[in-house]
């Protein structure tokens, strides 16, 4: 078990370092690349928890899609190309609020009695993922969130296209 802890500590340290670099680095594009390292670190931590599906989602969605979307969005905005950096101090307030919010959520989770009870191990192998599928499509399980997710995705798609098309019009 000590090897596991060692790997976890190294990964956590790298992830936090990458996170700090992400918010402190001057070039926006480099920030995006540090963000990819953060995502990768989180994927490794999921792997240590034996949550295969989450590892792969972290890589496919966060590194493969969201990070690339962010890079595209950065290349789209003119300002990002000069290495401008923030001069106002308002970010400090945001940072404090974010830290307090995160601490509150974590505290709530740790003190929530049901949160402790949920750590039952699954069978492993394919049954893990089949269990997710069954739960997602079970009317007494997560069917409603599953269908709502599709509507949420649709809303995101329409919003994204609307904004993108408007931008496209301006350019011409």
């Amino acid at each position: 078990m000590t090897t596991m802890q060692l790997i976890f500590l190294i990964t956590a340290a790298v992830t936090i370092f990458a996170g700090v670099m992400m918010v402190s680095v001057r070039k926006l594009l480099h920030a995006a690349l540090w963000l990819i390292l953060v995502f990768f670190g989180v994927a490794v931590i999921f792997g240590l928890l034996e949550a295969s599906f989450l590892v792969i989602i972290q890589i496919v969605l966060y590194i493969g899609a969201i990070a690339i979307l962010i890079v595209f969005a950065i290349m789209l905005t003119q300002n990002a190309i000069d290495d401008t950096y923030q001069t106002s101090r308002r970010w400090l307030v945001t940072a404090v609020v974010a830290v307090i919010a995160l601490a509150g959520i974590l505290l709530a989770l740790f003190t929530w009695p049901q949160g402790q009870a949920l750590t039952s191990t699954l069978a492993g192998g394919q049954q893990d993922i089949a269990a997710i599928g069954l739960a997602l499509l079970d009317p007494e399980g997560y069917l409603i969130p599953f269908e709502i997710a599709s509507i949420l995705l649709l809303a995101a798609l329409i919003g994204g296209i609307y904004v993108g098309i408007e931008h496209k019009g301006e350019e011409k």
Partner: peptide, 20 residues
């Protein structure tokens, strides 16, 4: 490093939604 068209962003967002 030049500015890019919005088209790339549109494809990326479509890809993200369908990937999810």
């Amino acid at each position: 490093r030049i500015q890019f068209k919005a088209q790339y962003y549109l494809y990326a967002i479509l890809f993200l939604i369908f990937d999810v």
